[in-house]
Design a protein around this nucleic acid. Structure first.
Lengths: 353, 353
DNA sequence: TTTGGCACTCTACACAATGGAGTGCTAAAC
DNA sequence: GTTTAGCACTCCATTGTGTAGAGTGCCAAA
């Protein structure tokens, strides 16, 4: 491996041609194929020499002696970083997407579903959308709906229109008007607070002068504490599972199965996304190729993922998962664009408070 | 085919043995195997004669000349209807399940998720749960949460703790207190009504004497109409997808794919469940075997499904999907039991109004 | 009516033979 | 020095052949 040596122009062009070809055909590409496709004429023999260099550098490899070459993960890496053409989403496509965002969103969940479905349809890969980090939501409204026998449905509406709910058991018998009073109290105190601040505030009433406040805060905390807790796991929307069946590399059941396992386990997906977009990410699109990603079960595939932002603050991730032989250029431009749209709508939702 | 002729005792015993064996081994079973397993001694040759009869009747068939026999869909049918031993769920298992239902349910969604996960774990098949028919829910509470710029989040809580919501645009500018007034009006009028009655009632205000009522009703209708509409599609919970990978008949990608397609398309699942449990079903457990079910993509598998009841009224379906070579006995007893539990908890939730 | 025996059929598996694609190397051409 | 034609070589994929094994159907004897 002599990866430190910079590529010559010729090597670049040929590596690019190999990867472009492989991406569309899914078959190991030989020197003859490249020779025919290239702009400046070179014989297959000359191409072979270059290919041999590229192999030594670790960018391509042969499945077996008498086969053509296929890109390695590091090969894709230089392709993604230096060689691929950056494309923009077609204007017409842009308008089409924007139109959908305008018309199709009736509730928060629609937004995530639309985003993931859209991305899976446009890219033909499997799309994932992670719901926003809890810290970026603030409390908009608290509602207590009395149910039977001392139980209450506790509803929490957040600034973006998200809902948390749970059935809680009242710690003491309460009349309807007392419950109303509690709800009013909670709404007044918690309005526009983050979950963490709300928790802290409620706790602070413990040594309050006003015994009424103290009592209400204690009641409120017992009803809300679980909803306000960091429960870690965020929901992940996943669309376009079926697309992997169209990828020849996943015709094989043994390769397919681990990937489907990842799709089924939200926990793994979350881990994967968290790894790509760790905290407040400054970058736009993150690409993890094959072995670069942390899940053993996803070593055969790549993920292209972007943070989306609410009011400038990265709060969640959206992206696509496909074979390492992915149309990185198209995928990343689409992911970036849809992430932008999603963030835009979410910001609008949360903004006009 | 001479399916009308009743089976002799010997034919029954042998058919039962064949199916029981095939269910556990997944391999075509030959006369020798049966001869060894049977209680009363018969030579393979005699068994072959009976098998020949059973084949002529259409209950078993040979994959090829020199193979043993496997049950046909009609074979499974007589097995399910007449031959299989009806088993009860072990008492210990029952207690375990009941315990889970007591402890794990914080909100309505948990209930469906628990039921489907439980069933998939217990049976090792894929489990589905359809949410209740809209007609069985009544309105418990309406909440209007003002969002930015003339938008409102409309929340509808039902008697079982279900939630419908949408972001609606106010048809006219309203102050916060006007919105509160509207919410109070809606809660007073719609309390405990079904969706259909609510729709009808709101419409009836059109020729009301009181102009204030008329105005509020019109506003309310514009905000609620979409939520109250029959939107047809019910949500379907699905758990244990990965279990089909353990079934040898689905090792083959061509058999696997259509089934996964069904799993991914809630519409198809709904159709399947609707077909098995049409309307207010008197029966307990419905079993559809292979070609008996209406979906082409599910011709290779069986479904065991039961309605669950809220207050005695069947309102949704719960069941498992697996290969036609299914452990029908165990599956149906478990489905029935879990359906009972689910209905029980739902009834409790809705009951104490 | 039951059963042992036997010929027959078909699959699954292993093994060899063949064709084709693609390479690496070398020596000649530019 | 770089490029290219030629050639031997390697390996896969496909096809065909042979064999062992499982199971059947049928017949004649018990």
């Amino acid at each position: 491996m002599k990866q430190d040596i910079p590529l010559t122009e010729r090597q670049k062009v040929i590596l690019q041609a190999i990867i472009n070809t492989y991406i569309t055909t899914a078959e190991a590409v030989g020197s003859r194929t490249i020779a025919k496709k290239m702009a400046f004429r070179l014989s297959p023999a000359s191409i072979r020499n270059v290919m041999s260099d590229l192999e030594e550098m670790g960018y391509i490899c042969q499945p077996h002696t008498s086969a053509g070459r296929i890109p390695t993960d590091t090969g894709y890496r230089v392709y993604v970083d230096n060689l691929m053409e950056i494309r923009r989403v077609e204007l017409e496509e842009q308008h089409h997407i924007e139109e959908l965002y305008r018309s199709r969103v009736k509730q928060l969940e629609d937004l995530f579903e639309l985003s993931s479905r859209l991305l899976s349809i446009l890219t033909h890969y499997t799309a994932v959308v992670q719901t926003p980090r809890m810290e970026t939501e603030t409390i908009k409204h608290v509602e207590l709906v009395p149910l039977s026998s001392g139980k209450t449905l506790v509803l929490l509406v957040t600034n973006i229109g998200g809902i948390r709910k749970q059935v809680a058991i009242l710690p003491e018998a309460m009349t309807t008007s007392e419950i109303d009073q509690l709800a009013t109290f909670l709404n007044k105190k918690l309005q526009a607070l983050s979950f963490a601040s709300a928790r802290a505030l409620m706790g602070s009433f413990d040594d309050s002068a006003d015994p009424q406040d103290k009592r209400l805060a204690a009641l409120g905390l017992s009803l809300l504490s679980e909803l306000l807790a960091e429960n870690g796991e965020r929901y992940v929307y996943l669309e376009g599972r079926e697309n992997i069946f169209d990828q020849p590399e996943f015709r094989n059941l043994d390769r397919l199965r681990p990937l489907l396992r990842v799709f089924d386990e939200k926990r793994l997906l979350n881990e994967l996304l968290e790894y790509c977009i760790p905290e407040d990410m400054p970058i736009n699109v993150c690409i993890r190729i094959g072995s670069e990603n942390p899940l053993d079960d996803a070593r055969e595939c790549s993920i292209v993922v972007s943070p989306y932002r609410i009011g400038g603050r990265a709060t969640g991730a959206i992206g696509v998962i496909g074979p390492t032989r992915m149309q990185y250029s198209r995928a990343s431009s689409l992911v970036a664009f849809v992430a932008g749209q999603l963030g835009h709508v979410l910001t609008e939702l949360s903004g006009g408070d």
